[in-house]
């Protein structure tokens, strides 16, 4: 079997030849495609810094083999904004000062986008904290992160209502 993988990454189809089946989605993004927004923290699924959306679901890119995800649709933090217009989660993270050093932030933001899409947490702070527990922040910006996720969830729900009206 040829080790070639075709992925849609941030809405662009990409085919990558792999010389080795050990390449994770995280390493493929960072080392082969220069998409370094997705961060490598623990590389063992414990910190959440590598969170991306695969087929619309948030997962740890460090624990996913690229070859196994042939055909998948990938969204990373680089694909989140609409040109210069930030995604509501990105805007809320800035508004609520939801980071300090910023290393965990792309993973936090992608995880928040996934959480809001799952529709299980709503604007309940306890459910948001529980839903974001797979993303660690060594600077301890959790309070701002929780506020940002809640505000983004409300803003996105409002936009959805307006669009439906």
């Amino acid at each position: 079997m040829s080790l070639s993988v075709t992925l849609t990454i941030n809405r662009v189809p990409r085919t990558v030849q792999l010389d080795d089946p050990r390449v994770t989605l995280l390493d493929l993004l960072r080392e082969r495609l220069d998409l370094t927004g997705t961060k490598k923290g623990c590389d063992r699924g414990q910190c959440g810094a590598c969170t991306i959306l695969v087929d619309g679901r948030r997962v740890n890119a460090c624990l996913a083999l690229a070859i196994s995800h042939d055909g998948a649709d990938i969204l990373t933090v680089e694909g989140l904004s609409d040109g210069e217009r930030l995604h509501p989660v990105q805007a809320a993270f800035i508004a609520h000062d939801a980071f300090q050093c910023g290393f965990c932030t792309p993973g936090q933001i992608m995880s928040a986008v996934g959480l809001i899409g799952e529709g299980q947490a709503g604007d309940d702070p306890e459910r948001v904290r529980e839903g974001m527990s797979g993303n660690l922040c060594r600077c301890g910006a959790y309070r701002g992160i929780t506020e940002a996720v809640i505000e983004a969830a409300r803003a996105m729900a409002e936009t959805a209502r307006e669009e439906a009206a």
Binding site: R58, V59, G114, L115
Partner: peptide, 9 residues
């Protein structure tokens, strides 16, 4: 169990 990311996978 685990985190939301892990439960999704």
């Amino acid at each position: 169990g685990a985190s939301a990311q892990l439960r999704n996978a």
